[in-house]
Computed example of a mutant assay.
Amino acid sequence: MASPAMSRSPLQRLSTFKNTAAATPTTTTATAAATPTPLSPVPSHLDTFSSDPIFSAFLSPDFNPTQFSTAALSSGSAASRIEKLQEGLRLLDTQLRHEVLSRHQELLQQLSSVKAAESSLSSLRSSISSLQSSVRHARSELSDPHRVISAQTHQLNNLHSTSLLLQNTLRTLRLIHKLRNLVDSQPDASKWDLSKAAQLHYEILILYNESHLSGIDVVDGELKWVIEIGSKIREEGMKVLEKGLESLNQPEVGLGLQVFYNMGELRGTVDGLVNKYKQMGVKSVSNALDMKAISGGGMVVEVQEGCRDTGHHRLVVGQRQGRLFGRG
């Protein structure tokens, strides 16, 4: 059977080390021994090691035991080196025992703290395991409903997109039907309601492009006819506009401009007409002031201008007279 001294822990065995000089067989010392006395500080032997020529090598960060052994054997004093090292080991053991005994209570407290930390970690592991189990259970219960909701949401989105596409398709077909009725009501394109036809044409193209109706056969088939009618509307609108400009008829000019405005092409049309009449004016003035034509004779150039208040003014280039005069 093991003795009580053999079953004690190393820390308990270290606590039994006492200073031999303090142990006496008197009653006074026995009473004093019952009360733990603080150990007197022992000077550290590491300070002497740092100045010792042999032990200082062990404190170097790049210490090499092979080189140290080789140097000891080559010096011829290996036995003395061994004794020196054993003495150093005894000193270190004494220093280590003193450090352990002087910090005995602190080490026990640290040990208690470690045990408490281990207990807390064990409880934390149990809580984490329970939490993971709850999460797995919740995930298994929510995964199927989430999958069903996701599928139904995607289906609802597709239904909404399809419904919106059908609505825009029906609206486009209704606009095309209105445009066809307007065109078929008058075989003569000059008698069409050009302003309304231009508005319908513009709305059809805008709705077709913004709603992405390309690829729908029924709409694509009608779109070719819509484009052809758009060309005729532009042609008739330009005729009305040019006729109004030539005759200075403001209603016709307004109708022509309204047609191109409804088609979204007003700026380009006006710029084109301005450039056209600008070139015509420059050419007419150049021909009228051409000295070769004036001196050659045989040609009369008349430029008439309509004026709202003063009537008509005519500039006549006289034949063979080589001079320019005005007549009201």
Rank of each mutant, 00 (worst) to 15 (best):
A198F: 00
A116W: 04
V274A: 01
E265Y: 01
V148A: 11
L179S: 04
H104W: 08
P25G: 08
H154G: 06
F58D: 05
A79F: 12
S129Y: 02
Q105I: 05
D184S: 15
S150E: 11
V274H: 09
Y202G: 04
A189Q: 12
D290K: 04
T29M: 13
L205S: 09
Q167H: 14
V301F: 13
D184E: 11
T310G: 07
Q155G: 09
S134H: 11
R97M: 15
R234V: 04
E252N: 09
I216E: 02
A197E: 01
L257R: 00
S190T: 10
D52E: 04
G221L: 10
D217E: 14
S75R: 07
G254W: 06
S143M: 03
S50M: 14
R90T: 14
R320F: 11
L159Q: 15
P65Q: 05
R8P: 01
A198L: 00
D271M: 03
R234C: 05
Q110V: 14
V114Q: 15
N287G: 07
S122P: 04
W192C: 02
A34Q: 09
S126I: 01
S127V: 09
V253I: 15
G221V: 10
S195E: 13
I176F: 01
S3P: 06
S295C: 11
G318Q: 10
L289K: 03
R103P: 03
V274S: 02
L273E: 08
R81T: 15
L179G: 05
P61I: 02
A78S: 11
G297L: 07
L289G: 00
Q95P: 06
Q109G: 12
T28D: 04
Q110Y: 13
A138W: 14
N249D: 04
H313Y: 06
Q155D: 10
T310Y: 12
M280F: 07
L46D: 01
N275E: 13
N168C: 01
V100L: 12
H160W: 05
S150A: 10
S190M: 03
G298N: 05
L96F: 13
K115C: 05
S295V: 15
H98F: 06
H212G: 08
S161V: 08
P53G: 07
I229T: 01
K283W: 09
A5N: 10
S56E: 01
L156H: 06
M291Q: 08
A288E: 02
P145T: 02
